[in-house]
Design a protein around this nucleic acid. Structure first.
Length: 540
DNA sequence: AAGCCTAGCGCC
DNA sequence: AGGGCGCTAGGCTT
């Protein structure tokens, strides 16, 4: 059963299966949704990010939805057309200038009515070569949208005091605005002294390169990987400066002031924000939270953070995608890379890891390229699968994930370059450039199938965890165990201490389910490591 | 002053 | 190294 939500000039229409409409004022929407939620409808609406947050603020949770905007983006990708952008915008918040309130409401009506978009999308899914998988993807993407809104609503528990303490420990006391911390000052002075070239423009990469060269250090950039290769007493304090300066500028006191309120960090998670289907985030760099500051992620008193991580997710995804039985066997334990070593394919865990990552990213040099032939002999299906995806990309073809999300076509400029390089009279240089571009696009499509399918597995995992934690009659979201963080292959649940065991079970069971949902009967296992901790930094 | 680009580095 | 991102600072253009 589903209910389509459609914004009208006079309010919001709730349209049931039989076509019956109930018109409710925008302000009465939460109550109207709450009243119908007990019947377990699927809410069909234009954009979860617009509709759901006000419901959550009113204490109303929704179990299932169909997000027309996100599903359109997937269908648009398959059809090779641009996604619709006109899904309306969120109602203007009450605090804004009253002059614009009326405009806001008018603009909030999308160009296409939700019931029509819904019919079109159902037809498009039914007409697809594999409707069942695509319907699964639509459901998983939509469930992700609900979870993203709920995680933003709940927020990641954050101790400003712990954050301040770790900053003070690393950098010295918080400086007055415009000044840099004492520890950075001291390190910069030390680097200047050891280089002996006078005042150092340490925060300007291009100027710093010149200064280093004046001091006799042959560098082309100031990248730390390049600096590490040098043997000079000034390098150690310079690297230290760069690390601490990064902490200060990216996740220092200013970050804390801007992003942490009332003990919570509330980034916006953006489902489908990455071309492969991975999530993106907006605000605070949520998906790049440095290990250095994870000690500030702190459970409330009487609560725990249950941190779960899918072990070696991407190579397992590749094993399942390709049906590689030997790699499935290597992954029977918790450590797939150790299993690859035991199979005799390579001699060390590091070789297994670097080799597999290289196979999935398209590495062509170093250790990864050296061990690739051995991996290809032991796991021909798995390696053959990513090689085929790479060749398809090099030919300009599109590739697809397990559930049917497609890679974009290469640009017109790319196709033109390939065409011209093959034409009569093309120069050697044109040929080289075209082959380089082709290989580059092949690396993208090679990775797309694995990264995109891993994102689908993660959506299924997350949806399974959410469903297991869900109990509609147990009160508001944040009084029960609830998801607070997600980063590609890792989930965090904030849970009352006495419910940690059931949360751990939910995380493990949902991972097993996710494998079945995405791959059906497959011998590949998807183990997760789970740790109940007070601080995120204690998880591993 | 605002917008755009690059360098660099954090995460998976 | 090879895939995908977001963010900050510096430095340039408009």
């Amino acid at each position: 059963m589903h209910i389509v939500v459609d914004r009208r000039p006079a309010g919001v229409a709730l349209i049931d299966e039989a076509g019956g409409e109930t018109l409710v004022p925008e302000a009465g929407l939460a109550a109207a949704v709450a009243e119908r939620e007990a019947e377990h409808p699927r809410w069909v609406w234009t954009d979860t990010a617009q509709w759901y947050p006000p419901l959550l603020r009113a204490g109303v949770r929704v179990e299932r939805c169909h997000d027309l905007r996100l599903v359109d983006a997937i269908l648009a990708g398959i059809d090779g057309r641009a996604p619709r952008r006109d899904w309306g915008r969120a109602p203007v918040p009450a605090r804004s200038d009253t002059l614009f309130d009326l405009d806001g409401v008018v603009d909030a009506r999308p160009a296409i009515a939700a019931p029509l978009a819904w019919r079109q999308q159902r037809d498009a899914i039914a007409a697809h070569a594999d409707p069942a998988r695509l319907a699964l993807l639509a459901a998983a993407e939509s469930a992700g949208a609900l979870t993203a809104a709920e995680m933003h609503h709940a927020g990641l528990p954050w101790s400003a005091a712990a954050h301040d303490a770790l900053l003070t420990e690393a950098l010295g006391p918080r400086p007055v605005p415009g000044r840099r911390p004492a520890r950075l000052d001291a390190l910069a002075t030390e680097v200047e002294r050891l280089l002996g070239v006078g005042p150092l423009p340490i925060d300007s990469p291009s100027e710093l390169v010149k200064a280093l060269r004046r001091a006799g250090l042959e560098v082309a950039t100031t990248r730390s990987a390049e600096l590490k290769r040098l043997d000079h007493p000034a390098i150690a304090p310079l690297l230290q400066y760069k690390t601490l300066s990064r902490l200060h500028t990216a996740n220092g006191w200013n970050w804390l002031d801007e992003w942490v309120r009332d003990g919570r960090f509330r980034p916006t998670f953006v489902p489908g924000g990455v071309v492969t289907g991975r999530w993106a985030s907006d605000g605070g760099g949520a998906l790049q939270l440095p290990r250095q500051v994870r000690a500030a992620v702190h459970a409330d008193p009487g609560w725990a953070l249950v941190v779960a991580d899918a072990a070696q997710l991407e190579p397992r995804i590749l094993a399942a995608l390709s049906g590689d039985a030997a790699m499935a066997r290597a992954g029977a334990g918790v450590d797939l890379y150790a299993g690859i070593v035991e199979s005799g394919a390579v001699s060390s865990r590091e070789h297994a890891k670097v080799g597999m990552l290289g196979a999935m990213y398209g590495g062509t040099t170093g250790v990864s390229a050296q061990v690739l032939p051995r991996l290809a002999r032991s796991f021909p299906q798995a390696i053959g699968y990513v090689e085929a995806a790479a060749r398809a990309g090099e030919r300009g073809e599109r590739v697809a994930t397990r559930l049917g999300r497609t890679s974009p076509a290469p640009s017109a400029a790319w196709r033109e370059r390939q065409h011209e390089a093959g034409a009569e009279g093309a120069s050697e240089a044109e040929g080289r450039a075209a082959r380089g571009a082709a290989r580059s696009w092949g690396r993208f499509t090679r990775n797309f199938v694995v990264q995109g399918t891993a994102a689908e597995w993660a959506l299924a995992w997350m949806a399974g965890v959410r469903r297991r934690l869900w109990s509609p009659d147990a009160g508001p979201l944040t009084t029960q165990p609830h998801l607070v963080f997600f980063v590609h292959d890792e989930l965090i649940v904030h849970s009352p201490l006495d419910r940690v065991d059931e949360v751990e079970r939910a995380l493990r069971e949902a991972a097993v389910d996710a494998g079945r949902i995405v791959f059906g009967a497959s011998p590949v296992s998807f183990p997760v490591t789970v740790a109940a901790v007070q601080r995120y930094s204690d998880a591993k």
